[in-house]
Nucleic acid binder design. Structure first.
Lengths: 237, 237, 237, 237
DNA sequence: CATGAATGAGTGTTCATTCAT
DNA sequence: CATGAATGAACACTCATTCAT
């Protein structure tokens, strides 16, 4: 017999509760950080009794895992969608980068710990690793496509994928940390520029002839305490 | 009155104790992970009474912060030393990258949590931020130097620095995670290659023959001809 | 009005449910032990909702009590049947012993906690006491019969009954504990032998004259740690 | 170096605390039963913080085990002492029975659960089994001695020992349950009488010839002649 | 009646921190 | 100063019981 109406209804309700609880957990996470993510608080924020949490999640780990899966899923899907497009590799890469910029920016508090916290890492190991691996896979595949298209140099695609993802994450992290939020488009363009052409002046030699002649200058320590980050944009685009 | 001899002695003793304790903490950290870093264990490993810890550190946070400072200091110093060298930017950059590769590889267990754990992050926020900032500052300065030398394109040095550091961290993290450890030299070369020339095929061979003869280039670590010749594995695994 | 047919039907249904539930409880008990006897599990095994349990039993205690009554009832009945027989006391006694041996052996998991667990004891106090008392009563009566028959010595029948029951229980318990299961007939015969004739050599003096003369030997501690129980059967059958 | 004075003092203090706590646990046990034996209550009764319990016992199990060992130890010792005496087996047996009567009577609340509770049984399994086994061993040895002395019939000493212990325990239990406390001496004498001579009238046949004619006796397990001469106290009230 | 989600007091256990010695 | 016993607020998790549907 097919699942009765009642059953379907219940299933829906359960799903809704799980989502509600995981949202509450996310809330707690944002507010108190991982160490402050206690079942009590989750229950309180969710507006239910502590014991009720255990109707929906066998234990804390399951809740955290669920939250993780839930949150990362849309990005995974979006990534897949981009990956499936029939467009040049560069375009795909840029779309991917943009998507992750978007996504990371919006879910910072979450990724901040979901991607980084070793404790959670332990918890979600399988899941996380596969997801992280998936991202690398997708980027790798795009790079491979680009290589066959002749627009990317032949190189170790996995390594390059890792570098791109690392750049992406760190840049976003920094932006969120320092609070200065450039428009995403600017960030995407900058990143793509460097990823594609590197920082070397090889092709740009014509662009900055003025620099010629400067040899091996001594470092100019600007008495910075290390915190503040002066404007420092030399040129950008 | 100037600090008496006794005072100086005491100060020294205190410093020694703090170091000993933080080393004990590091030991515990390596063995039990962050969640297992309890004051009891630290005291035990340090061979002193638990209460005594609180003579040297007001609380756990302070101890962790101190440990962080202590551990990252050598890298900071090494970075400073590299930074101060009077050598071309590319060489500096490569030295810096190599140093961090080394350092990260060796202190994985530590950084795994010192750099990543949001809990610790919370604790060491100020410190960490400044250190992270310092790293970015140094990389930025090197990039700036390279730009004036004409070997780097003019670009947002902070942004580029962040990308490089992000790449660095993520690549190392992945290597540690997957267990496959390429020789550091290989990693360094690969990273430098992509950082310098990007992944695009455009600037690679045909487009920038003009780049030949580039001044102040990074010391070609190995038999690399100016011709961007990296064997560079395609397809990876 | 006399109890309507509907009422009777309902009563029957209720009774059936109670039995089903108590059987489920017994199942849980066997599988998980007393500490694992939760209402959830009972409901699950019984195939009904947890809430429904409370329609048939006011609380857990009532359920356990019911289970106790239910389980011991057959033994009680069997005991009554034996008691009613018109046969010599010795035969009755032996039948009784055999019945309890059988019963205990089969319901070990149950009695293990029904008879022994003080928690349950608390719960079933009245019931248990009466049942225990009933057993004692029956044994006592048999003893009394035996005394008038002249086959038993005149003695405090209650006291003797208690001793017999105690022996019975402990012997069975030990067998179940150590795992070695003698055939019930052997156990019954041995027990009856000692119960009837005691351990004294009074009548056996003629049988082991060789032993005479040995007086007050020093104890022979065989360096046993106390766990292992060597065969040690001196004679038995 | 020998343990310093400080160390010895500390050790003593720790021991005292452990005893105090286990006494508190015993108190709780008596008052609330095993299910009510919570660490909170123990702490409260002991007049210390709950956390402090864990300085002295790693967990609840360890506390319960300690309590068990502590409580049973004196009886074990007393049993050993009796066992070592150089006296006839019957005397030993009686002393043993008396000792256990005494001991059980005094520590009823404890044994009630230490010996019987399956939950605790699980906990103290090794310990308990060995202790129980020890008791059986000692009784067995005494019986064996008696057999060589010629005062006991040759029989399975383990089995007989179990029966005696079972009788002992049950009789005491009943007394404590019903509240009627006969003087211990009476109990001891009665038990010894039945243990030694059994309940059968075999030896008393001469004394109560009127009983002759009623046969249908149980099958005489061994080749005992109807004769047999035991005086066999009638007693009973 | 049957249901099962909701409850919340309670369980054993941990650990940063304090303080009398 | 050094000590380590004492603390008590947390923690994750359980489960008998209730009650709206």
């Amino acid at each position: 017999m097919a699942p009765s109406l009642t059953e379907k209804c219940r299933e829906l309700a359960v799903s809704a509760m799980k989502d509600g609880i995981s949202q509450a957990a996310l809330e707690v996470l944002k507010q108190y950080g991982y160490e402050g993510l206690t079942m009590d608080r989750v229950a309180e924020v969710a507006g239910i009794a502590k014991g009720s949490l255990y109707h929906y999640f066998r234990n804390k780990q399951e809740l955290v895992t669920y939250l993780f899966e839930q949150t990362i899923e849309p990005a995974i899907q979006a990534g897949e969608e981009i990956f499936q497009r029939v467009v040049p590799a560069v375009e795909k890469l840029e779309a991917m980068v943009r998507m992750w910029f978007d996504y990371f920016s919006q879910h910072r508090a979450l990724f901040d710990f979901l991607f980084r916290d070793p404790a959670v890492r332990e918890l979600c190991l399988t899941s996380r690793r596969s997801k992280n691996g998936l991202a690398i896979d997708r980027f790798s595949a795009i790079l491979r496509q680009g290589i066959s298209e002749g627009v990317f140099r032949p190189l170790d695609v996995t390594y390059a994928a890792e570098m791109i993802i690392g750049s992406l994450q760190f840049v976003i992290e920094r932006q969120l940390e320092t609070g200065e939020a450039h428009p995403i488009e600017v960030s995407v363009r900058r990143l793509m520029d460097i990823v594609l052409h590197g920082i070397g002046a090889s092709s740009a030699s014509a662009e900055s002839p003025s620099a010629i002649g400067q040899r091996c200058e001594a470092p100019q320590v600007e008495g910075k305490t290390g915190e503040s980050s002066e404007p420092s944009q030399v040129a950008a685009e």
